[in-house]
Design a protein around this nucleic acid. Structure first.
Lengths: 245, 245
DNA sequence: CGTTATCTTGACCGTCGTCAAACAGGGTGG
DNA sequence: CCACCCTGTTTGACGACGGTCAAGATAACG
C-alpha cells in the first residue's frame, strides 16, 4: 500500500484499510473538491449544539472529541490523527452532540458536504469504506469504555499509549519505538477519567518501572511487550486487518 | 406515527425516527424474509472473536453488549430494547470485537445478511436510516463514556435510569412513570463501572431521597425532574427529533 | 420446604481526588 | 543577558468515594 500523493493521501490510505478501493475509487477521492485550512491548537472545529456545516479531513496535526457534564468537567471521548475524517459522526445527524477540537496546530481539508454525499451515493465501494470507518470508531469507543470502566489508572494510561502507538504505526506516521504525545497531563486525565495529578503519578510510576521512556512529551517504549501486557491491549478492536466481504 | 403490524413493526418505528420512509420503504422492510426465534436469558447472540453470521432484530425482551478485560472483569457497553437491530455493528466488520447477550427471554427476527445488504443497496432511504441508527448508537456510547468517566455513582446510576426510561418511552414500550428494569444489581454494576455492593447502596440512597420508587425490579419516578437534574440527563444525544436533511 | 440467586448491611481498606505549593522550561520584553 | 511571566509538571499531606470481604435477609422457584 503506497501513499497516494496530495493532502488527501493519508485519508485514502486509511479508507483503503477499510475496504478494497479500485484505482478509480482512489482517483475519485483524491479529486474531491477541497479547501485547505490551517488552525491553531485548541480551536473548535465543531461545537456541541451546532448543526454540522462541513466535512473536514485532518491532514496534519491532532484533534479530539469531547463532551462536558453540567458542572463543567470534561471527558475526551476520542483522539484523531492525520487521515481521519472528523465529521462522519455529525454529517448525517441534525445537531452535534459533542465538540471537536484541535490538540495541536493542524491542517484541514474542508470538503463540501454535497460533494461528499454525492460521491457516497454514486460509489458503493467508497460508501462502504466510510461506513466501516464509522463502525471502527464505534468499536474504539467500546474499548475506551472498557478501559475507563474496568481498568485501574496504570493499565488505563498504558492502554491509551499503546492504542495511540498502534494507530500511528498503522497510518505510517511513526513506529512503535515512540512518538511525540500531543497532549498535556490535564488532557490525558480528561481522556482517561482521572485527575492530572494522578496522571502524573502514574506516568512517573510507568517510567520508574522502565515501561516507558520520556523526554519532554516524547514517549519511548523500551519494553513494548511488557507494556502491552499490563495495558491488557490487543489491537483486535482496531480492525486493522479488516477484510472486505 | 402508528405502529406497523407484525414482528418487525417496532424496528420500522425506530427507523422512521431516523429518516423519512415512504409507504413503499416501510413495506419493503416489513417484507424482509425472516425467521422468528425465542431465546433464554443470558444467551449469546454474538460471541467476541466470532465472524458475524446473521442479522438479528430484537422483537421482545432485552439484550446488551459487553466486553471483557484480560482478568475477566466485564463492562456492559450498551443496552438494547425491542426494535433494535443487534448486528449493525458487526455486519460490515470481519470479526466481532465484543459479545451480545440477552438479558431476558427474548424473541428475535433473524434476517439473512444478503437480504439486508441487498435492500440497503437498492433503497437509499433505508440505507440512510440504518446509518443514522449506527451514528446514534455511537452518540450513546460517547454519553455512556462521559457518564462513567466523569460522574459519581449517584449521577451515573440516575443517568442510566433516565436514559432507559426515555428510550422505552420513545419506542412506545412504557412511559416515564416507570418500568420493569430487566437487570440485576451485578449487571447494573458492570454497566456503570461499579461493584454490585455499591449499586445497592446508591440505589437505596436514591430511594431514600424519594427520587425513585422500587418494588422488586419495577422502578418508578415520583420526581422525574429532580432525578433528571441530578443525573445531568439531557436527551439531546439520543437524537429523538432527528430531522432528515 | 429446601435450594438457589439476589439483595442488603457492616466493617475495613485502598485507589484516586483535593488542595496547595514548589519547580522547570520557554518565550517575551526591558 | 536577565527578570518576568505563563503554562505545565512534580510533590506531599490528607480525605473520601467506592472496593473488598463476609455474613445475613429476602425472594423466587422447583
Amino acid at each position: 500500500m503506497s501513499l497516494a500523493p496530495g493532502p488527501l493521501g493519508l485519508m485514502v490510505r486509511k479508507l483503503e484499510r477499510h475496504g478494497a478501493l479500485s484505482a478509480g475509487d482512489r482517483g475519485a477521492l483524491l479529486a474531491l473538491p477541497h479547501m485547505l485550512r490551517t488552525v491553531n491548537p485548541i480551536s473548535y472545529l465543531v461545537r456541541e449544539g451546532d448543526p454540522p456545516t462541513q466535512c473536514a479531513v485532518l491532514i496534519s496535526g491532532y484533534a479530539f472529541r469531547q463532551k462536558l457534564t453540567g458542572d463543567g468537567s470534561r471527558q475526551i471521548v476520542s483522539l484523531h490523527i492525520p487521515g481521519d475524517l472528523l465529521d462522519l459522526q455529525n454529517l448525517y445527524l441534525d445537531i452535534a452532540d459533542h465538540s471537536v477540537q484541535t490538540l495541536t496546530f493542524a491542517e484541514l481539508a474542508i470538503i463540501p458536504r454535497k460533494a461528499m454525499h454525492d460521491l457516497c451515493g454514486v460509489n458503493a465501494a467508497i460508501a462502504r469504506a466510510m461506513l466501516v470507518s464509522i463502525l471502527i470508531e464505534a468499536a474504539m469507543l467500546r474499548e475506551w469504555l472498557l478501559n475507563i470502566g474496568r481498568r485501574d489508572a496504570r493499565a488505563r494510561l498504558a492502554h491509551l499509549l499503546c492504542e495511540f502507538a498502534t494507530r500511528l504505526d498503522a497510518q505510517g506516521i511513526s513506529n512503535r519505538n515512540g512518538y511525540e504525545l500531543p497532549m498535556n497531563q490535564e488532557q490525558l486525565g480528561d481522556a482517561l477519567g482521572l485527575t492530572p495529578v494522578h496522571i502524573n503519578r502514574t506516568l512517573r510510576a510507568l517510567e520508574k518501572d522502565g515501561l516507558v521512556k520520556r523526554q519532554g512529551r516524547h514517549i519511548g517504549f523500551p519494553r513494548w511487550e511488557a507494556l502491552r501486557e499490563i495495558a491488557d491491549f490487543s489491537s483486535r478492536y482496531l480492525h486493522l486487518d479488516q477484510q472486505t466481504r
